[in-house]
Protein backbone atom coordinates (compact mmCIF):
# COMPACT_ATOMS: atom_id res chain seq x y z
CA UNK A 1 0.00 0.00 0.00
CA UNK A 2 2.68 2.45 1.06
CA UNK A 3 4.80 1.99 -2.06
CA UNK A 4 1.86 2.29 -4.44
CA UNK A 5 0.51 5.30 -2.59
CA UNK A 6 3.90 7.04 -2.64
CA UNK A 7 4.18 6.32 -6.36
CA UNK A 8 0.75 7.74 -7.09
CA UNK A 9 1.45 10.83 -4.98
CA UNK A 10 4.54 11.50 -7.07
CA UNK A 11 2.44 10.90 -10.18
CA UNK A 12 -0.14 13.39 -8.92
CA UNK A 13 2.52 16.06 -8.42
CA UNK A 14 4.02 15.39 -11.81
CA UNK A 15 0.68 15.59 -13.61
CA UNK A 16 -0.35 18.77 -11.85
CA UNK A 17 3.01 20.38 -12.67
CA UNK A 18 2.82 19.60 -16.38
CA UNK A 19 0.92 22.15 -18.47
CA UNK A 20 0.56 19.79 -21.46
CA UNK A 21 -0.94 17.03 -19.36
CA UNK A 22 -3.25 19.50 -17.66
CA UNK A 23 -4.46 20.62 -21.09
CA UNK A 24 -4.96 16.98 -22.07
CA UNK A 25 -7.09 16.12 -19.05
CA UNK A 26 -9.13 19.31 -19.00
CA UNK A 27 -12.75 18.24 -19.21
CA UNK A 28 -11.77 14.63 -18.56
CA UNK A 29 -13.40 14.18 -15.16
CA UNK A 30 -12.89 10.55 -14.26
CA UNK A 31 -12.20 8.31 -11.33
CA UNK A 32 -9.34 5.89 -11.81
CA UNK A 33 -9.14 2.88 -9.52
CA UNK A 34 -5.73 1.25 -9.28
CA UNK A 35 -5.69 -2.26 -7.84
CA UNK A 36 -2.45 -4.06 -7.08
CA UNK A 37 -1.84 -7.52 -5.71
CA UNK A 38 -1.38 -6.59 -2.09
CA UNK A 39 -4.40 -6.87 0.20
CA UNK A 40 -4.63 -3.09 0.61
CA UNK A 41 -3.16 -2.04 -2.73
CA UNK A 42 -6.31 -0.36 -4.02
CA UNK A 43 -6.39 3.38 -4.52
CA UNK A 44 -8.80 5.74 -6.21
CA UNK A 45 -7.46 8.73 -8.12
CA UNK A 46 -9.85 11.54 -9.11
CA UNK A 47 -9.13 13.59 -12.25
CA UNK A 48 -11.20 16.78 -12.21
CA UNK A 49 -10.90 20.25 -13.66
CA UNK A 50 -7.64 19.45 -15.43
CA UNK A 51 -5.90 18.28 -12.25
CA UNK A 52 -5.44 15.16 -10.17
CA UNK A 53 -7.52 16.26 -7.21
CA UNK A 54 -7.81 13.38 -4.88
CA UNK A 55 -6.00 10.22 -3.91
CA UNK A 56 -7.64 7.90 -1.41
CA UNK A 57 -8.05 4.19 -0.63
CA UNK A 58 -10.57 2.55 -2.95
CA UNK A 59 -13.52 0.64 -1.61
CA UNK A 60 -13.85 -3.04 -2.46
CA UNK A 61 -16.82 -2.41 -4.74
CA UNK A 62 -15.73 1.03 -5.92
CA UNK A 63 -17.24 1.95 -9.28
CA UNK A 64 -15.01 3.89 -11.62
CA UNK A 65 -14.78 4.82 -15.28
CA UNK A 66 -11.24 3.44 -15.46
CA UNK A 67 -9.94 0.43 -13.54
CA UNK A 68 -6.35 -0.80 -13.64
CA UNK A 69 -5.31 -4.23 -12.36
CA UNK A 70 -1.76 -5.52 -12.17
CA UNK A 71 0.92 -6.69 -9.81
CA UNK A 72 1.86 -3.82 -7.54
CA UNK A 73 5.39 -3.83 -8.95
CA UNK A 74 4.07 -3.36 -12.50
CA UNK A 75 1.77 -0.53 -11.39
CA UNK A 76 4.65 1.25 -9.68
CA UNK A 77 6.78 0.88 -12.82
CA UNK A 78 3.99 2.22 -15.00
CA UNK A 79 3.30 5.24 -12.79
CA UNK A 80 6.97 6.12 -12.52
CA UNK A 81 7.65 5.88 -16.24
CA UNK A 82 9.95 2.88 -15.96
CA UNK A 83 7.54 0.63 -17.87
CA UNK A 84 5.64 1.44 -21.03
CA UNK A 85 1.92 1.00 -20.19
CA UNK A 86 1.03 0.09 -23.78
CA UNK A 87 3.63 -2.64 -23.72
CA UNK A 88 2.43 -3.99 -20.38
CA UNK A 89 -1.15 -3.89 -21.66
CA UNK A 90 -0.28 -5.83 -24.81
CA UNK A 91 1.68 -8.37 -22.76
CA UNK A 92 -1.36 -8.91 -20.57
CA UNK A 93 0.44 -7.91 -17.37
CA UNK A 94 -1.59 -4.70 -17.03
CA UNK A 95 -5.35 -5.03 -17.24
CA UNK A 96 -7.27 -1.91 -18.22
CA UNK A 97 -11.07 -1.78 -17.92
CA UNK A 98 -12.30 1.39 -19.58
CA UNK A 99 -13.74 2.72 -22.79
CA UNK A 100 -11.39 2.87 -25.79
CA UNK A 101 -11.19 6.63 -25.50
CA UNK A 102 -10.36 6.61 -21.80
CA UNK A 103 -7.68 3.98 -22.36
CA UNK A 104 -5.95 6.09 -24.97
CA UNK A 105 -6.28 9.20 -22.82
CA UNK A 106 -4.61 7.48 -19.89
CA UNK A 107 -1.78 6.21 -22.07
CA UNK A 108 -1.40 9.66 -23.61
CA UNK A 109 -0.70 11.03 -20.11
CA UNK A 110 2.18 8.58 -19.80
CA UNK A 111 3.34 9.43 -23.31
CA UNK A 112 3.57 13.14 -22.49
CA UNK A 113 5.11 12.66 -19.08
CA UNK A 114 7.82 10.19 -19.95
CA UNK A 115 8.42 9.85 -23.70
Amino acid sequence: MAELRATLERFQLRVNDNARVRALITGWDRTLVVRGTGPEDALAVRFEGGLVRDLRPAMADEKAEVILHAETRVLCDVFTGVANPAQEFLEGTLQVFASDRDQVKLDAIALILWD
Binding site: W28, V104, D107, A108
Partner: peptide
Protein backbone atom coordinates in the same frame (compact mmCIF):
# COMPACT_ATOMS: atom_id res chain seq x y z
CA UNK B 1 3.62 2.60 -28.68
CA UNK B 2 5.57 -0.61 -28.18
CA UNK B 3 7.55 0.25 -31.34
CA UNK B 4 6.09 -2.56 -33.37
CA UNK B 5 4.74 -0.20 -36.02
CA UNK B 6 5.79 3.10 -37.57
CA UNK B 7 6.13 5.92 -35.03
CA UNK B 8 3.37 7.97 -36.60
CA UNK B 9 0.91 5.34 -35.44
CA UNK B 10 1.54 6.44 -31.83
CA UNK B 11 0.69 10.09 -32.39
CA UNK B 12 -2.03 11.30 -30.12
CA UNK B 13 -3.93 14.55 -29.97
CA UNK B 14 -2.76 16.56 -26.97
CA UNK B 15 -6.16 18.23 -26.72
CA UNK B 16 -8.58 15.37 -27.25
CA UNK B 17 -6.41 12.39 -26.46
CA UNK B 18 -7.47 10.59 -29.63
CA UNK B 19 -4.91 8.44 -31.46
Amino acid sequence: RERRFFEWGARVSARRGTP
